[in-house]
């Protein structure tokens, strides 16, 4: 039996708890996460069964990032990898004083607001592209135009849904704090 395995799995940004639970359960079964990429999780057999995980969302430059990582390391967190500004951390339960990277809701809310801002910024140019195309609409290009609009709009619907789910998470946190 191999000591490593790769699992392909997709979690959306609003399914963080589900993803965290899944990773902890994998650790309980002896599979420790070594690397995370987009939809791909690399595990290795490990004796360490009690592992906590945390994801942070933050955009920063390289020098800031080094300071950021060593800050987390001083608290007992091990940096795993990053996927599009999502930073994955893990810690052996015995190494950390507090098993979460956020100890109060206000800072958790800020994290989701940063994420929401990115989603909105991603959404706006595509809406703008549709409007521009409508303004410059030419009859002979209709099939291309319809294809473009359907494609972009379905992407946008998905983004809208994502923003809505993140908004719900923020609202729940605001009520809880």
């Amino acid at each position: 039996m191999s000591d490593t395995k790769v699992v392909k799995k997709l979690f959306f940004a609003w399914q963080e708890d589900k993803e965290l639970n899944w990773l902890s359960n994998m650790a309980k079964m002896g599979w420790e996460l070594k690397h995370a990429a987009f939809c791909e999780y690399y595990f290795q057999k490990s004796q360490e069964k009690d592992i906590v995980f945390a994801f942070d969302y933050r955009a920063m430059n390289k020098s800031e990032f080094e300071i950021y990582i060593s800050h987390f390391e001083s608290f007992g967190w091990q940096y795993i990898s990053s996927v599009a500004n999502w930073h994955y951390f893990k810690a052996y339960r015995k190494d950390v004083v507090f098993p979460d990277i956020y100890s109060e809701n206000t800072s958790k809310i800020e994290k989701y607001k940063r994420l929401m801002l990115t989603l909105i910024i991603t959404l706006l140019p595509s809406l703008w592209a549709i409007i521009l195309n409508l303004i410059n609409y030419q009859n002979e290009k209709m099939p291309v135009f319809i294809f473009f609009v359907v494609f972009v709009l379905s992407m946008d619907c998905f983004l809208f849904y994502g923003i809505y789910r993140i908004y719900r998470i923020i609202r729940r946190l605001v009520r809880g704090s």
Partner: peptide, 12 residues
Amino acid sequence: RIKLGAGTLYGA
């Protein structure tokens, strides 16, 4: 009673 998380502290 108050255990600060690494992320909360970084943001603060």
